[in-house]
Amino acid sequence: MSIRAGVALAIAAVGGVADAHPVHEIVQNAYLTLAPGTVTLQLDLTAGPQVAGVVIALLDTDRDRRVSRTEGDAFAARVLRASAGSVDGRALAWRATSVAIPAYAALRGAHGTIRITATAVRVDRPGFATLTYRNGFSPAESRCDANIFLRPADGWRYLVRSQARSNDGRRLAVRYAAARSR
């Protein structure tokens, strides 16, 4: 899977929009959105206090208690390399579009969420297709989930026919129909 992180990548010192309260694990919530010509992956990572150090070590590689843009880029690339997607068996190539990193104290205190957003190009065709996603990012015990969202536009409409997920929440397969209206 090719990744082109660093393009239009921005690190935001945000307070975080976290709604999770993990303790000994990383909550990893994936939001996949089907839109004309693309799939967007938004991955929200919230590390509990017992594992926050693991995530911080991956982020703050020079140990200066700050996360630089370069470190954020590298972290996003690492996460996206572990995020596999496909449409009808054709692999999706994620391109990171933004990375939001909470303040260091929020990361340490487990009340900040890292948000990585990436897009991949795909081709719309009328009829059925299957989107698959696998989250392989596992630096510590994690609670994973993935959900599909639809953003119809430009005459394209989508309908989810079925969803299959693994018990651990790391894998999701979505059977959907695409149709074009004039």
Binding site: V27, R143, N167
Partner: peptide, 23 residues
């Protein structure tokens, strides 16, 4: 029953306008 493991809140704050697909 979609899983024997619980998951976390999906559409909390910051997720206005997103619609969960039926499951």
């Amino acid at each position: 029953v979609r899983s024997t493991d619980k998951i976390d809140l999906v559409l909390g704050p910051g997720h206005d306008g997103q619609v969960l697909q039926p499951e």
